[in-house]
């Protein structure tokens, strides 16, 4: 049977080596799982699994160290870029990345991430933006949109009293130290493929010593949004993308020649 398969079939897709066999804690449909897998696929394709160190953050992102089959550390809330800085400065030839949500990165950890970017810290950051605090039950995040209902903005985010969301990629595009800043989305296969290329480019930026790279990934949170995964995909497309436009916000000129 196996032999026969070898002869007539090719494997189009299977779980990448860099994913462990652990079942995830993510809710059904949660695109964290897609982001985890894309990072694993890219690391496999680059042959870098044994030379990569991941830094997990706090939030739903916290348990990524159970799912990616490589060395990992787990940071205090918001401090992943600082930990990654410590690791990368001691071990400059390793590939170091952080995996952070929007509460972690854009609220409690804003100082750490901005200064890592401003220093041009040679690390890669994968930033999952699902417009709320997922792990604690869907509270308002710095990325929650005006009018968005969350468990701590129950009648919708009122910008008069709760202020405005932060568009992180746009903000970081103004930092001289940042070399690769893009926003992608995980809502359909086409965009997922684009996200994967961006993850690869972020790592390529690091491997070439070009400095700070970040891929913002628009993600769904069906459980806390209170809608099905399929409706969440629609909501992301219709509500999030207009507010958080996809695109390349900063690309180091030396990256132009890389063709993936």
């Amino acid at each position: 049977m196996v032999l026969e398969n070898c002869e007539i079939e090719t494997t189009v897709f299977e779980r990448p080596d860099s994913l462990t066999g652990t079942t995830s804690h993510y809710c059904p449909g949660c695109t964290h799982g897609i982001a985890n897998r894309l990072i694993a696929e890219v690391i496999d394709e680059m042959g870098m699994r044994e030379k990569t160190i991941g830094v997990a953050s706090v939030g739903c992102s916290v348990f990524i160290y159970n799912y990616l089959n490589m060395d990992f550390v787990q940071a205090p809330h918001g401090r992943a870029p600082a930990m990654a800085t410590g690791i990368k400065r001691v071990l400059p030839d390793r590939m170091v990345f952080t995996y952070q949500g929007d509460g972690d990165l854009a609220s409690i950890g804003m100082a750490e991430i901005v200064h890592a970017a401003a220093r041009g810290e040679n690390i890669s950051v994968f930033f999952l933006n699902n417009t709320n605090y997922g792990m604690t039950g869907g509270q308002m995040a710095p990325t929650s949109m005006p009018g968005q209902k969350t468990t701590s903005s129950q009648t919708g985010r009122d910008v008069e009293t709760q202020g405005f969301p932060i568009r992180v990629s746009e903000m970081f595009s103004k930092l001289d130290g940042a070399s690769y800043i893009v926003r992608r989305s995980l809502h359909d296969p086409k965009h997922i493929r684009m996200a994967k290329k961006a993850i690869r480019m972020a790592f390529e930026t690091q491997v070439r010593g070009l400095g700070f790279s970040m891929v913002e990934l628009l993600s769904i949170c069906p459980t806390n949004w209170g809608i099905s995964p399929l409706n969440s995909i629609k909501w992301l497309e219709e509500k999030m993308i207009p507010y958080y436009p996809l695109g390349d916000y900063k690309i180091h000129p030396a990256l132009a020649e890389i063709k993936l």
Binding site: E7, I8, E9, T11, V12, F13, C30, H32, G33, I34
Partner: peptide, 19 residues
């Protein structure tokens, strides 16, 4: 075509194609 495996959040799907 593998599209299902691209969108699958759990990497649960293995896809084979006839050569």
């Amino acid at each position: 075509c593998g599209i299902c495996s691209v969108i699958c959040p759990e990497a649960a799907i293995t896809v084979y194609r006839e050569k």
